Simulated assay, not measured.
Amino acid sequence: MLREIWLVFRRDLTVSMRIPAWIFIGIMQPMLYLVLFGPLLEPLVANTPGFPPGNAWAILTPALVVQMALFGMFAGFGILAELRTGALERMRVTPVRRIALLLGKVANYALQLLVQSLIILVLALVAFDLSAPFWGVVLALIIALLMGITLASAGYATALLLKSEEAFIPLLNTILLPVLLLSGILIPITSGLAPDWLYTISQINPFRHIVDADRSAFRGDYTMDGLLTGSIVLLIMAVLAVWWGARTFARENA
């Protein structure tokens, strides 16, 4: 099956490389947050109690990497285009396993996410006061990549179920906006900053715990308190999303 995954990955990577501008288009929003919002966050972190440890860049940068992973559901647009052009149907008649179709496409998205994340990290290191341990950054990237795989799998499954851009776009906006706001990506939602009702609601959001784990890894906090909850939540979500995606690929392409 590894060879089948490689073939699908190589085919999708070839298609992606024909329009490499998409890599930079995908990082425009987090780059703007880094450049335009980061300086505003610096005095807030210094003068407002309730922020997690670290300076503004150690708080914002890993969250922006997670934000790019969160938008992995938009990968489903690629499947809708292949459905419309018949490319997915042509792949369906090949002997490639359906789970290999999913994992090959997800691997291509994960590679793009890795490149985008490295660009953001290099910008934060070169242009701003970002300081983070090497292995903490590596662990934070692994967390973000696993989250990207999770969201891309869910995006592919959702797109295959809906089969319509007109339905897919409003659904993503409805889901991702509250998830983004309640995950504390831009401003951490802590008990010292947020009102009790907002803090309680954010605790229900699983992505909030993943963002917290990514920030903990970035500042070198490898303790159970820093990483355990977010890591467990992410692993469960990843297994469920890949299972759902593979099952949907098999059913919709039967």
Results as ranks from 00 to 15, higher is better:
L2G: 13
T14Q: 14
A21R: 08
I23T: 13
I23Q: 06
F24I: 05
M28C: 02
P39I: 02
E42V: 03
P43E: 06
A46G: 06
G50C: 05
G54M: 01
G54N: 02
P62L: 01
V65H: 01
M68W: 00
A69E: 01
G72D: 07
F74P: 06
G76M: 04
G78Y: 12
E82S: 14
R92H: 13
T94D: 06
R97C: 10
I99K: 12
L101F: 11
L102A: 08
G104D: 11
G104Q: 09
K105G: 15
Y109V: 13
A110E: 10
Q116M: 04
I119G: 00
I120E: 00
I120F: 01
L125K: 00
S131Q: 03
A157L: 13
A159C: 11
A159K: 12
E166F: 08
L171P: 14
I175A: 12
L181S: 08
I185C: 01
L186F: 07
L198C: 11
L198Y: 10
Q203I: 07
I204L: 12
I210Y: 00
D212W: 07
Y222R: 06
D225K: 15
G226E: 06
L228T: 09
V233D: 04
L235W: 05
L235V: 14
I236G: 07
W243A: 10
W244F: 07
T248P: 13
A254V: 15
